[in-house]
Design a protein around this nucleic acid. Structure first.
Length: 713
DNA sequence: TTTTATGGAGTTTTT
DNA sequence: CTCCATAAAA
């Protein structure tokens, strides 16, 4: 390993592994885990409760298949949902295997699998090499643009179209099918837009995230030769977090598994929190229909939490209907009661949480990183941040605006996309006037109309003769300057030195100066420049990296029929960037001692000794929209995820009132609080703490802080 | 026609 | 804070 980094320095992953992992030491597993590892011969469903060591099972199973059963590593595919999970799995498998044994093993996300599939089968799918991948925001732009003529850029409507399209794509419903099935007026309208969007994306040699799953699945279902070939490439398929699979992913798995039925899936229906974006937890139980010989193993021993916490979790989740009951237990004793704190409002809540952390840490000499504060939605973090800052408590937040949502990153990515794929109108529209080149809406509308008529990409149209009659000389001149620069860099890219061409491009357009200039403050400008450089650096590092090390995430190619062979290192790096697969998350790099703030969604898979879940109120958790949509069960699972993050102590807080808009709203405690077992539930004042009491408490904490500081120094 | 200034409004969860 | 619409200025 070139650069061994302390990636999992957070307590979330370090602690409580069942045992030190040594090659195939299956005796460190409990009987159920061992059963799951050793079972072959029929499909296997592992129902893995929270904290039950499922990653150990899946990684050891891979090692077992390779070492004991002598499967070729290159014929084992493991699929996860996030790049982080894939990296983690890869590292842990590496730790179990002898050097070189894992050669050719494939561990990656559904989307990276789909991308590699499409690259290999590009010809059959009618895709040109260099195709672009559009993320949700790009697709929304496409929809808005295409609807502009009829609906003056109504973003809300566009969003609803996008959502509906997502549903169709999850079910692999084509635009034509959507139209023929449409029952409402709205569905007809949406299906028509869907059709336009798909046509437009194909014309731009682009696919979206859903297509990365949908296209391979469609091809596998319809082409027997290709299906057989892929089925023969895979001797055993493992899927993690199976409850998060959507309809398309379910069908993809089914096609890949084929008649060999060598499949291991791991999941937990109680931790299914992504139904809102198409996940179907029922996929877990439909497996037994497809595979009558399915073996089910339940993992109920928990290695994370005290039994007080686990009993609370069990009782809470028992309010949901279940196909298979699970009861978590551990050998960690009863532990403390769950504390429930009532607060006057969100400021008081934040202050109290911050105060308690400071206080608790001083009393018990814990690290800041042992604490997490979890919440339903991002905006709840705001008062918390302010309180933490006032108390001088260091914290880190997950979520927020992701790296890839930043304007500078999207701009840079769009330039790269355009270089790889000159048909990518979407990217062109984004960067053609960034930095300002005097190319405005009117010019682009003229170009757009022309391109639409000619049914050609906009970039190519700029250089046609016919465009001259449509645009003024000055406008065309500016467009041509732009297009000339793109073609020039594109050629340089083809000729080999891609990285150099990219860096020259950004220097020539003065992109860093542009960032500094456009920013509201110098600090912000520098931050944006840094983000931009980080991106370029990621490409540089990826190119420089030893390809021998790359066997895991990169799905192993086969000699024949590989359309992907002509892809250069730069192109590959950019592709991985689009899939967010290239960046080591910044927060993982620092093993700094900070309190963790995260949404409940972002907290899944993590663990902390001391956890506080704030805002346990009706209309927040469960969220108002979920109550209206009658999806409270998923909210309960979200609460369950929150509860099961805690190893030693769990605190739940709620407010009696909070500000919404400008109004002060009376709130009521979450129904989930009532669903916790009484014997492990300790209400600390059903009555709110008054602001005076709260302030007094803050003062006392400050006092003890001062005392401890002066004592130290 | 394009750029810049200004004010107003609104935030569930995200690979 | 950041996205948007609108209107004035270049």
């Amino acid at each position: 390993m070139g650069r061994q980094r302390p990636r999992h320095s957070s307590p979330a992953v370090l602690n409580f592994r069942p045992a030190k992992e040594s090659p195939l030491n299956l005796s460190s597993l409990n009987p159920r885990q061992r059963e799951a590892v050793k079972h072959t011969g029929s499909p296997l469903l592992v129902l893995a409760g929270a904290g039950s060591g499922k990653t150990s099972v899946i990684t050891r199973k891979i090692a077992y298949l390779i070492q004991t059963l002598e499967y070729p590593a290159s014929k084992i595919y493991a699929v996860t949902f996030t790049n982080k999970a894939a990296r983690e799995m890869k590292e842990r498998v590496d730790g179990l295997l002898e050097k070189g044994e894992g050669r050719g093993l494939s561990v990656g996300t559904f989307h990276s699998f789909g991308l590699n599939f499409i690259r290999r089968e590009a010809r059959a799918l009618n895709m040109k090499s260099g195709f672009s991948i559009l993320d949700g925001e790009d697709v929304l732009n496409v929809i808005t643009d295409l609807m502009m003529a009829t609906n003056e850029g109504d973003k809300d409507l566009a969003k609803r179209v996008q959502h509906r399209m997502g549903e169709w794509k999850n079910d692999l419903v084509s635009p034509a099918q959507a139209l023929s099935f449409a029952e409402t007026e709205e569905d007809v309208q949406f299906a028509n837009i869907y059709e336009k969007v798909q046509r437009y994306m194909r014309a731009c040699n682009s696919v979206d995230f859903d297509d990365l799953i949908a296209l391979p699945t469609w091809l596998l279902e319809n082409d027997e030769v290709i299906r057989t070939r892929w089925q023969n490439k895979i001797r055993h398929l493992l899927v993690d977090e199976y409850q998060d699979t959507n309809g398309a992913q379910y069908r993809l798995v089914k096609q890949l598994v084929g008649p060999r039925e060598a499949l291991t899936v791991v999941g937990d229906d109680d931790q299914s929190i992504y139904a809102w974006r198409g996940a179907r937890p029922e996929n877990l139980f439909e497996l037994s229909n497809d595979y009558p010989s399915l073996k089910v193993v339940k993992l109920e021993q928990n290695y994370r939490s005290t039994n007080g916490i686990l009993k609370s979790a069990n009782t809470l989740i028992a309010n949901n209907p279940h196909e298979h009951e699970k009861t978590l237990w551990s050998d960690k004793g009863e532990g403390d009661d769950i504390r429930i704190l009532a607060c006057a409002n969100e400021e008081a809540e934040a202050e109290r949480v911050a105060g308690s952390i400071l206080d608790h840490r001083l009393r018990t000499k814990q690290k800041y990183r042992d604490y997490a504060v979890l919440y339903r939605s991002n905006h709840q973090a705001r008062p918390l941040e302010m309180a933490l800052q006032r108390f001088k408590i260091p914290y880190k937040m997950t979520g927020g605006t992701s790296f890839f949502a930043r304007a500078e990153v999207r701009d840079a990515m769009s330039y790269l996309r355009l270089l790889l794929n000159p048909d990518d109108d979407n990217a062109l529209l984004r960067v053609v006037n960034t930095p300002r080149r005097g190319i405005g809406i009117a010019t682009l509308e003229g170009l757009g109309r022309y391109a639409m008529d000619r049914e050609k990409p906009m970039l190519a149209c700029i250089d046609e003769l016919g465009i001259q009659s449509k645009l003024k000389d000055a406008q065309l001149e500016r467009l041509r300057n732009f297009s000339e620069m793109i073609w020039e860099k594109r050629q340089a890219l083809d000729e080999g030195n891609g990285l150099r061409a990219i860096m020259e491009l950004f220097v020539e357009i003065g992109y860093e100066d542009h960032l500094r200039q456009e920013s509201s403050s110098e600090a912000q400008g520098e931050r944006r420049v840094q983000n931009f450089q980080f991106l370029i650096d990621a490409i540089r590092k990826d190119i420089a990296r030893d390809p021998e090390e790359d066997t895991l995430v990169e799905l192993e190619g086969d000699e024949d029929d590989s359309e992907a062979a002509d892809e250069t290192a730069v192109e590959a790096a950019i592709r991985k960037l689009v899939l967010r697969d290239l960046l080591e998350r910044q927060e993982e790099e620092d093993d700094s001692d900070r309190v963790q703030l995260a949404t409940l969604h972002a907290a899944k898979g993590l663990e902390f000794p001391f956890v506080t879940v704030i805002g346990c109120e009706e209309n927040i958790l469960p969220h108002r929209g979920s109550i209206e949509a009658d999806t409270v069960e998923e909210e309960r699972r979200l609460a369950y995820v929150g509860v099961t993050r805690a190893m030693r102590e769990l605190t739940l807080t709620y407010c009696k009132a909070r500000r919404m808009g400008g109004e002060k709203i009376e709130t009521s405690p979450s129904r989930f609080l009532d669903e916790l077992p009484e014997e492990h539930r300790h209400w600390e004042g059903r009555d709110p703490v008054s602001p005076e009491q709260n302030r007094a408490m803050g003062e006392s904490v400050f006092a003890s802080l001062r005392a401890s500081l002066s004592g130290d120094s």
